[in-house]
Amino acid sequence: MIAWSTGWEVEYLRGRHVVSAMHVHLVFVTKYRTNVFNDAMPRRCEDIMIEVCDSFEAELREFNGEHDHVHLLVHYPPKMAVSKLVNSLKGVSSHYLRKEFTSRINPAITHGPFWSPSYLAASCGEAPPSIIKTYIEQQRRPT
Rank of each mutant, 00 (worst) to 15 (best):
H69Q: 08
V82P: 04
P77A: 07
T30S: 12
T110R: 15
F101R: 07
L85M: 12
P107Q: 09
M80V: 13
S93T: 00
V52M: 02
R98P: 01
G15F: 13
Y32G: 09
L120F: 15
R104F: 12
F37S: 05
V24N: 06
S94R: 01
P42F: 10
S103A: 10
E51S: 15
L89S: 05
S94E: 04
G112W: 05
L60V: 05
I109V: 05
H25C: 06
K99P: 01
L89D: 00
L73V: 11
V86I: 05
L85G: 00
Y32K: 03
F56A: 02
L13P: 06
A40D: 14
V82Y: 01
R43G: 12
N64W: 09
S116F: 04
L13S: 05
A58M: 02
E9C: 04
V86G: 00
A58N: 02
D68W: 02
L85F: 01
C53H: 06
T34D: 09
G15M: 11
A81G: 05
I109T: 11
A81H: 07
T30V: 08
V18M: 12
G91Y: 06
R98V: 03
A40P: 00
L73P: 06
C53V: 00
A21C: 13
S20M: 03
L120T: 08
H71A: 06
A81T: 00
A121S: 09
S83L: 04
S20R: 05
E59K: 14
L72P: 00
K90V: 02
H17M: 07
N106F: 08
V70H: 07
F114K: 03
A40K: 13
L89E: 00
R98E: 01
T30L: 01
S103R: 14
H17L: 10
R44F: 13
A40L: 13
L85E: 02
P113F: 11
K90L: 01
F56C: 01
V86H: 04
V19M: 15
M80L: 15
P78Y: 07
M41T: 10
N106H: 15
R14K: 14
F37I: 08
M41G: 11
E57C: 08
R104D: 10
G91L: 02
V29Y: 13
G112P: 01
T110Y: 15
N87R: 13
K99S: 15
R33Y: 06
E46D: 07
L60E: 03
D54K: 14
E62M: 11
R14S: 13
Y119A: 04
V18P: 06
Y96H: 13
P107W: 09
K84S: 10
I50F: 09
M80T: 11
V92K: 01
N35D: 14
H23G: 01
N64Y: 10
T34M: 12
V52H: 00
V74S: 02
H111V: 04
S88W: 00
D54F: 09
